[in-house]
Amino acid sequence: MPPKSFQAASPKLAVRGVGKRYRLNGGKTIDAVHDVSFDVMEGEICALLGPSGCGKSTVLRMVAGLEDPSSGAMFLDNAQIDGPHKSRGMVFQRYTSFDWMTVQKNVEYGMKINGVSKADRGAQADHFIQMIQLSKFKNAYPCQLSGGMQQRVAIARTLANGPSILLMDEPFGALDAETKWQMQELMISIVETSKVTVLIVTHDIEEAIFLADRIIFMSRHPGTVRENMVTEFKDGRRFSSHEEMIEAKGFHEIEKKIMHMMRDEMRNDREEALQEC
């Protein structure tokens, strides 16, 4: 990691006063996201955590450029974000494997449309397929893979494209408990080797604590930042297993603190939460 003084000077991703206002059918407006600001440093794993309806996915989608903010602005490497770009690759909760391509072709896809030569993208794909431990299945089609394997392919496909920041929208939400662990641990080892900056949305407290160097806790109605926490109990390093985290001093304190905030949010259920059918 770069020295702290440098980090503080220029964040990798800067979100400044971002809001998202929707107009409902009746002409009423609703603020899904209100005045959200935070920084993500180079090489950092940052988690957007909060109850459902707090707008964390909307913030992520705005960073991805898939939705436009109603107010405020976001900057990646000091350049204002405007629409989707390959520097901000995203992994979704639902499987996004391209069914008609093999694992290898899936991982090569981003490079192919960006004009990387065949030899280069082959080598690059091999590297990332090895990283996600699917070398044996590189010629398999997605329908032959389990959910966890498909998510690994999606991660490799995004990383192989060389993004400046990796965006993840509850990427492990649809997986069973043991696969989730495995994926989270794999995620740590991937970030350690590739040094990529990550912004991940989750509603899973343990996942956030395990993965993140920084946790942005969001509250709802309207969705805004309630607390910006650095997971200091990790002492500047990351855990390679869940057991290690559970035994670490300070883990239970931060878990309890976040649980209290989550509980607090649950009381904050209002009628506007009703969605349109």
Binding site: G65, L66, P84, T96, G110, I113, N161
Partner: peptide, 22 residues
């Protein structure tokens, strides 16, 4: 599925590429 198209967008595909390759 919108996620397939959005995935391609965040990988840098333009509209024509999305139509022909996704």
């Amino acid at each position: 599925r919108a996620e397939l198209i959005e995935t391609a967008m965040t990988l840098g595909a333009n509209r024509w590429q999305i139509l022909s390759t996704i």
